[in-house]
């Protein structure tokens, strides 16, 4: 059974059809790539999946067999769907450790009023969570910076922290919105290998939006291509690479075939 399935997922903003009847299936334990030119609706698609936007009538999203079409964002998060943001959206003034501890929030076992009623229990549980989160920071290589505010990290470290915060949610599925944006090619390779290690370690299913086609082609099991809010192609990296509809969407009709290959491999 597919872990995530959308049927006729649509979203319009006024007259603009940002996502147009997209149906998609993602199988467990796979890496699914989502590519498309700028403005093709990739980020909107993520926002719909995670409840940041509400989809239009007639859409349907199910995750792990549960209908989440009109669920609020926090409920979807509790079901095990985590994401990162293109612009990261870290909690800048909070320490690195606190950032990942916020990520752990869905698994907090005490109620919001517990600190007033049962402080001992709060301290006991928080201590265990802190140790676990310190271990996670160790794993992604940020343990040294646990105490400093997230805003003071370097660009690459911030991307790692955004990833760590999503992993701290113990998700079943992870949506990555351009994880490699702004990184040098070497750093992108390192980040992708970290992501693949995390995938194995935590048994994750991943959907990744990425502009760097090389990364997508080498890591994804299946790829969907969006253009103007519509899904224009889907299949293995090899199939998508050769699909004329994709080539057209990216480069226009006139472009010669060899140039396209070169662009894809770059």
């Amino acid at each position: 059974m597919a872990l995530l399935e959308t049927r006729n997922l649509s979203k319009s903003f006024g007259g603009l059809q940002a996502i147009d009847k997209v149906s998609l299936k993602v199988e467990p334990n796979t890496v699914h790539g989502l590519i498309g030119p700028n403005g093709s609706g990739k980020s909107t698609f993520f926002n719909l999946l995670t409840g940041v936007y509400q989809p239009d009538e007639g859409s349907q999203i199910s995750f792990n067999g549960i209908d989440i079409t009109s669920s609020p964002a926090h409920t979807i998060a509790e079901l095990g769907l985590a994401r990162t943001f293109q612009l990261l959206r870290l909690y800048g003034e909070l320490s690195v450790l606190d950032n990942v501890m916020v990520g752990y929030h869905p698994h907090t076992k005490y109620g919001p009023l517990a600190p007033l009623i049962n402080g001992a229990e709060v301290r006991r549980q928080d201590k265990a969570v802190r140790e676990e989160m310190e271990e996670l920071l160790e794993f992604i290589g940020l343990a040294e910076h646990a105490e400093i505010p997230a805003a003071e990290l370097s660009g690459g470290q911030r991307r790692l922290l955004a990833l760590g915060r999503a992993i701290a949610m113990r998700p079943k599925m992870l949506l990555l919105d351009e994880p490699g944006a702004g990184l040098s090619p070497v750093n992108v390779d390192n980040l992708m290998s970290t992501i693949m290690t995390l995938k194995k370690r935590y048994n994750l299913t991943i959907i990744v939006v990425e502009h760097i086609l090389k990364v997508v082609m080498s890591t994804c099991d299946t790829i969907s291509v969006l253009d103007h809010g519509q899904k224009i192609s889907e299949g293995t990296p090899e199939f998508v690479k050769g699909d004329s509809a994709v080539v057209e969407a990216y480069l226009g009709r006139e472009m010669a075939d060899e140039d396209i290959r070169a662009a894809m491999d770059a």
Partner: peptide
């Protein structure tokens, strides 16, 4: 921590559950 997350970034907070 939930309060502070809301202060820093409401959308990220909601996506964090």
């Amino acid at each position: 921590r939930a309060f502070q997350a809301i202060r820093e970034d409401t959308i990220a907070a909601s996506v964090n559950g």
